[in-house]
């Protein structure tokens, strides 16, 4: 264990090595590490943002889905009530049409019966004249007795 000049040379070597490390090695490696750390930190942050965005988008999507379902339900309800209304209207119309047809029929029948009654009345008058002719054995001048016959027919 001899202390000698080696101690000073070691000191100098030590200083040179530490300084070289400080000057040549440290800056590029530290820069690389710091840059990479920043890149990774940014990446993590981006991923978190993206996850938040996805969550938001999912929320929006479910909102839209819910709205769509509600709208569909409303439409369905509307359609159903419209259909009911249509059916009701058709029923009413049908009923009215039936009534109308029935009334028309009744009117027609009445007309017909009137007409028949008229013709019957004419026939009765003729028959009555013929009958009277036979009874009287004489000609009844239809022209002369028209008035009487018409009066007779009106009484029938």
């Amino acid at each position: 264990m001899n202390i000698n000049i080696t101690i000073i040379w070691s000191s100098i070597a030590f200083l040179i090595f530490t300084w070289s490390c400080y000057y040549f090695i440290w800056p590029p490696i530290m820069a690389a590490i710091r840059t990479r750390q920043k890149t990774i930190a940014d990446g993590i942050e981006n991923a978190e943002t993206a996850a938040r965005d996805v969550e938001q988008a999912e929320q929006q999507a479910s909102e839209i889905m819910r709205n769509a379902r509600l709208e569909a339900q409303t439409l369905l309800d509307q359609a159903r009530s419209q259909a009911t209304a249509l059916v009701e209207a058709a029923k009413t119309e049908g009923r009215e049409e039936g009534e109308r047809l029935k009334a028309a029929g009744v009117a027609e029948i009445e007309q017909e019966s009137n007409r028949i009654r008229e013709s019957l009345r004419g026939d009765v008058a003729t028959l009555a004249v013929q009958g009277a002719e036979r009874i009287l054995e004489s000609d009844i001048d239809s022209d002369k007795h028209r008035a009487m016959l018409e009066k007779l027919a009106a009484e029938l």
Partner: peptide, 26 residues
């Protein structure tokens, strides 16, 4: 005033090895 040539040379060489390896990495 004597110098230990062996330990000084080895320490120097190993120090340079350190600088070389870390220098390449840098």
């Amino acid at each position: 005033w004597a110098i230990h040539v062996d330990s000084f040379a080895w320490s120097l060489g190993l120090g340079l090895l350190f600088l070389a390896v870390f220098g390449i990495a840098a």
